[in-house]
Design a binder for these strands. Structure first.
Length: 636
DNA sequence: GTTAGGG
DNA sequence: CCCTAAC
């Protein structure tokens, strides 16, 4: 029987557009598919919170230990390449020098902004930020009524602490003790499942809360990061709507739509595979999210048609799912403490957290308790690898850990509604060859769609895979634009490393005791990516570069456009450029008030229309590259 | 592998 | 952004 625990985050975003809503296309076409994918909230956030607390404790509550922590964390933290460049720069220059055409005649750097942004990063220091997250409160309204499983698991990962350092790097300290105790209390009532790991406590609420089984909206754990300790005591108590109630706070569903949608695509696919794919007749499906999978699925034919393909892709998309996990619904409150110019504190609150869906095979005769346990085990296993926390501001990944909150734009006096966190599992077994696995741990492998027989890894648990201390140097780090545009989860640039294996968890047949055994599953190579890329809105500079290129090269030669203006922007494929152009043309043709996203200067839009008109008119005589083909439409 | 379009 | 058909 195949059971799915789905917590659609809906957003991967590595990605991530902080845009609370999905793109037009997504809303139209995809949203429908996602509607059913109600989030199965999962208190991973709680786990994270706990982890943070413990880590804090381990670090002797030394607020200034960030240095050490940071150093330690460096391995697991993305490498920062701020000296990356502006791919379009050359292009612009070239262009400018090239023809009399006014294209880009201004000669401005295509990415002035980015260039500027990079200045301070490394120079900035971690401790500069006055903003300190002094307390962290974890709350959850998820109640586990049934058998709770508490298990202590030996920790394996050496990088478990990954998360904390990230926060510390941002000048965030976790004073912890008091808050920790508080969180502890709350969780007690909730029967939290805890896993100790390398000093990190991983708290997991039952994944299979009644909500899931009942089809009711999932409860979401809530974690608060409160900057001001003073306020902490106060706010922690009742500022959290999702408290279990022990403090009088009412549970509240605070799911983040964005998050849910990010994974929706993959999840849906997975669902398709599971539901329509080959599920052993002997097995009965237990769909915890049945309501999400209506009997009549939209585009059924299409889905079925894609089944086979998806089956293959499932192997890869599953890997990515965990990456989708992210906290959202971030709220902040600025506090002006004392006075120092840098004494502003930022209060942050993560209202919800979700993780991607899980695929678990369980026997029909399995008990609910065992089911829960199974899920818990899976999650625990996944989390054991540690989590990496990323900070996203307006959809852009703030990768410079040295940046202060202020520098990053996270100021008490600024709108912080666009801040997101990304949580990624760092654990995972190394590839057999010992190759570093830049990818994050997977929740599941492709094989999940297959019968249990496909389980390949027999190791009890990924604990043994702790040798991957290697840097998780994301492949995308080498990209230029990606650095600029916060491609936090560069699935598309996933390493082609076939040897990479991850700890996809694949529950196996029930063991003698009836307990469900879960074994890590070798992660399939990541070449096949089933996950939707993170939406990375085009910046005006990119739009300008695109317009320049199209004016010069024309429409219909997107590869050339790509090579010309986005050659180093790995996250922009020529298809992307083509699509962007399409949207630009559309944008230019609609009323300004109907436009969304980052405003595009009218001047650019005018050029878009002009170029579009020109090339539509001259499709037959597209001049070879290099020719000044558009003298007529060159604005300047 | 590209291009063009629908979704 | 994704997916595909049609080069």
């Amino acid at each position: 029987m195949v059971m799915r625990k789905r917590s659609d985050n809906g957003s991967r975003g590595r990605r991530i557009a902080n845009t609370p809503r999905v793109p037009n296309s997504a809303r139209g076409k995809r949203s429908t598919r996602k509607k059913k994918d109600d989030m199965r909230a999962f208190d991973l956030l709680a786990t994270v919170a706990e982890t943070l607390l413990d880590d804090q404790d381990n670090s002797a509550n030394a607020p200034n230990a960030s240095g050490a922590a940071k150093a330690k964390n460096k391995k697991a933290v993305k490498e920062e390449h701020y000296d990356e460049i502006l791919p379009l720069k050359n292009m612009v220059t070239e262009k400018d020098s090239r023809s009399g055409c006014a294209l880009g005649s201004d000669g401005t750097c295509a990415f002035p902004r980015q260039a500027n942004n990079r200045s301070a990063d490394n120079s900035s220091t971690r401790n500069e930020v006055g903003s300190v997250l002094e307390s962290l409160t974890v709350k959850s309204n998820m109640l586990v009524r049934d058998s709770l499983v508490s298990r202590a698991r030996p920790c394996e990962t050496s990088r478990g602490p990954g998360i904390i350092p990230e926060f510390e790097a941002h000048g965030i300290c976790h004073p912890g003790s008091s808050s920790s105790a508080e969180a502890e209390q709350k969780h007690q009532a909730e029967q939290v499942i805890r896993t100790q790991e390398d000093g990190h406590a991983v708290v997991l609420h039952s994944l299979l809360d009644s909500a899931d089984l009942d089809g009711r909206p999932p409860a979401l754990g809530e974690v608060q990061y409160i900057a001001n300790r003073e306020d902490d005591e106060n706010s922690s108590g009742c500022t959290h709507p999702s408290t279990t109630g022990d403090k009088g706070c009412k549970p509240q569903y605070l799911g983040n739509h964005r998050i849910r949608k990010l994974l929706a695509s993959k999840v849906r696919k997975a669902a398709d595979n599971k539901i329509y794919g080959g599920i052993p007749s002997k097995s009965s499906k237990l769909n915890l999210c049945s309501k999400k999978i209506p009997a009549t699925r939209q585009k059924m034919q299409r889905t079925i048609f894609k089944k086979k393909k998806l089956a293959h892709r499932a192997t890869s998309f599953a890997k990515e799912m965990l990456n989708e996990a992210r906290g959202t619904s971030f709220s902040t409150e600025g506090r002006n403490k004392s006075c120092g110019s840098d004494n502003y504190h930022v209060k942050l609150r993560i209202k919800s957290f979700n993780i991607p869906e899980l695929f678990i095979d369980v026997p029909e005769n399995a008990t609910i308790g065992s089911l829960k346990r199974t899920v818990m085990d899976v999650v625990n296993s996944i989390i054991q690898g540690g989590l990496r926390v990323g900070v996203l501001l307006q959809g852009k990944d703030i990768q410079d850990d040295n940046k202060t909150l202020r520098q990053a734009g996270i100021c008490h006096d600024k709108k912080l509604n666009n801040i997101d966190f990304t949580l990624e599992c760092e654990g995972g077994q190394d590839s057999p060859s010992g190759v570093v696995i830049p990818e994050h741990m997977d929740l599941l492998g492709a094989d999940v769609v297959e019968p249990l027989a496909r389980v390949k890894c027999e190791e009890p648990f990924p604990e043994t895979g702790g040798d991957d201390n290697q840097q998780l140097t994301p492949p995308y780090r080498s990209r230029s634009l990606s650095d600029l545009y916060s491609d936090v989860h560069p699935v598309e640039m996933a390493s082609q490393d076939a040897s990479a294996s991850s700890q996809a968890i694949v529950p196996v047949a029930p063991s003698d005791d009836g307990a469900l055994a879960i074994v890590p599953h070798c992660r399939p190579r990541r070449t096949e990516i089933g996950q939707r890329r993170t939406r990375t809105p085009f910046h005006v500079d990119e739009v300008e570069a695109l317009v320049d290129a199209v004016e010069l090269i024309g429409t219909g030669r997107w590869r050339a456009v790509k090579m010309h203006a986005f050659d180093h922007a790995d996250h922009r494929t020529y298809v992307d450029l083509k699509d962007k152009w399409k949207t630009l043309v559309h944008t230019a043709s609609i009323a300004p008030h109907q436009r969304r996203g980052e405003p595009v200067p009218q001047e650019l839009l005018d050029r878009v229309l002009a170029a579009q008109a020109y090339w539509t008119e001259h499709q037959q005589d597209k001049p070879p590259r290099g020719k000044a083909a558009l003298p007529a439409i060159c604005p300047a």
